[in-house]
Nucleic acid binder design. Structure first.
Length: 495
RNA sequence: GGGCCGUUAGCUUAGCUGGUAGAGCAGGGGACUCUUAAUCCCAAGGUCGAAGGUUCGAAUCCUUCACGGCCCA
């Protein structure tokens, strides 16, 4: 390619002009570059080459042009593929006048392929001494600045592809995310769990307390909800005899956005027949430990805390945790009603901190959220939640105001939630009916009566331990990034 | 929803109590046979997030809005 004239300082026009010149040669966007070596393995194979050393074998690499250092008769390019970067040593002698001159008109961001032999420069940089090269794809827009990179947080989210091109740490998070999910699959598959897919579009939403997204099916002439949980379908699988079942998929909750909330997020739910929530607790700490080891160590840094995920994790009842942090015993005789509990909150001087709630269970939840949750930095299982806020969990035999439930907290975030699943259809119906009246009283997150689910349960559901885990939050913790937007490739943003 | 902070060239940014925007990288032209944030010389590139307002004069002060970040609810 000859030199492209251009002097108006317009980067886009310059690149357009170069592309036009390439199109004339018919080689601006070829279909392939094969065979080629991945840069990472190639580097590894020649790692021991000494400075000034040369190797005879011919290799071909392809990637995006990330740096360009043009000199008079010898120039240096840096190309990058997913596995790493490699310097191309480009000498006038080896390329010939025209192909050497054409290098000058490449732009950072172009994809190129190059062929040559491996060498290490006198200054010690492993390089490919190239004998030929070709343009694989022309880039029309300039990349972010090479030294500072792309730091604007908003741009990183809106144009994630640029973030991925420039910020290796960012790409690394998503590679680790895949490894974490794979380790979870391996863990569950190894225990004989069956992975299934259940409906995203549901006629009734349930399995969690959250407001849904609503959509409409034109042909069926009915509204459908995007699922807020997979729970009720996975239990149908348990009833159907898939004794160990799980699903990893997107749930959708029509709620606010924060460092730990995105309206669509990835949830793992597992159900195992014939076990209770104690069994599930052990499974969770082992599974998280396996995931942590898959991408690093059992000790992670998150939001300024060093967190040790080594199992086993402490287990403490919600009653004991609240007593310790607030001095209030929610199980005591003088705290058995909402009014009594609120009086105890007042006695404890917490009335400004803890919002008032309509029921005993929701009041306990508020008290817990305010006084205990922020302190749960190291992994811990909080067990035995109030009945009212846990409509799918079995009552504790020793105190029916509480249920056989746990939440796993890490770094102040709820990352797992599990029950000894309620399998008594009459009790389940009673719980639904309570929620129906709560809904009527204005609680949009209360459950609706799911007659079809009740019918399934009436055929007999085995005793079951079930669990839900927020994958995005787990990835945050295991990769040490502070915001859920850093573990979701294309997070929700205003337009 | 509330508080604080931010938005200046493709990217990273400077710009004091208001005086008409300065740089680095990227891009253009030139020099250079081992550079690696290459270096050196030359030239170019900006409706300062948007809309109003105050003023002789606004990137700068005021108001509203948009988007984002952090914290709080």
């Amino acid at each position: 390619m000859d030199g492209v004239p251009g002097h108006d300082g317009d980067v886009f026009a310059e690149r357009r002009a170069k592309l036009a010149a390439w199109r004339k040669t018919g080689t601006a966007y070829p279909t392939k570059y094969q065979p080629r070596d991945e840069i990472g393995p190639l580097r590894a194979a020649y790692e021991r080459l000494e400075a000034g050393g040369e190797a005879p074998d011919v290799h071909r690499v392809a990637g995006r042009l990330m740096a360009k250092r043009i000199h008079g008769k010898v120039s240096f390019l840096v190309v990058k593929d997913m596995s790493g970067e490699l310097q191309l040593f480009c000498a006038l002698d080896a390329l010939g006048k025209d192909r050497y001159a054409a290098l000058e008109h490449l732009d950072l961001g172009d994809h190129i392929g190059a062929e040559g032999t491996m060498m290490r420069t006198r200054r010690g940089e492993l390089s490919l001494r190239i004998t030929s090269w070709q343009l694989l794809s022309k880039s029309l827009r300039p990349l972010p600045e090479k030294f500072h990179g792309l730091t604007d947080v908003e741009l990183r989210y809106r144009k994630r592809y640029l973030d991925l091109i420039i910020n290796d740490e960012s790409r690394e998070v998503f590679v680790k995310r895949a490894a974490i999910i794979k380790s979870i699959r391996d863990f569950l598959d190894g225990r004989g769990f069956v992975e299934v897919e259940t409906p995203v579009l549901q006629p009734l939403y349930g399995g969690a307390m959250a407001r849904p997204f609503v959509t409409h099916h034109n042909e069926l002439k009915r509204d459908l909800y995007l699922r807020i949980a997979t729970e009720l379908y996975l239990k149908r699988c348990i009833i159907g005899g898939i004794d160990r079942v799980y699903e990893i998929g997107k749930d959708f909750r029509n709620e606010g956005v924060s460092y730990k909330h995105n309206p669509e997020f990835t949830m793992l739910e597992t159900y195992e027949a014939y076990v209770d929530y104690n069994h599930v607790m052990t499974m969770v700490e082992e599974m998280v430990g396996a995931a942590a080891r898959a991408v690093g160590s059992l000790t992670v840094d998150f939001r300024g805390h060093e967190i040790d995920l080594t199992p086993p994790w402490p287990r403490t009842t919600m009653r004991a945790a609240i007593l310790e942090k607030s001095g209030i015993d929610i199980g005591a005789d003088d705290a058995r009603t909402v009014a009594d509990l609120q009086a105890r909150i007042k006695d404890a001087g917490l009335v400004d901190k803890v919002p008032l709630a309509p029921t005993w269970g929701t009041q306990v939840d508020e008290l817990f959220s305010e006084t205990v949750e922020p302190h749960l930095i190291q992994p811990v299982f909080i067990t035995e939640h109030p009945l009212e806020t846990s409509p799918f969990a079995k009552k504790c035999p020793h105190d029916p105001r509480f249920v056989e439930r746990f939440e796993g907290f890490i770094a102040g975030m709820e990352t797992s939630n599990a029950f000894s699943e309620l399998n008594d259809p009459d009790d389940q119906r009673a719980r639904f009916l309570q929620h129906v009246s709560d809904f009527a009283a204005g609680d949009e997150t209360a459950h609706q009566l799911d007659e079809d689910f009740l019918e399934a349960m009436e055929y007999g559901m085995p005793p079951t331990g079930g669990m839900g885990m927020g994958i995005d939050r787990l990835v945050m913790i295991l990769t040490g990034v502070p915001s859920i937007r850093d573990v979701i490739l294309f997070p929700a943003l205003r337009s």
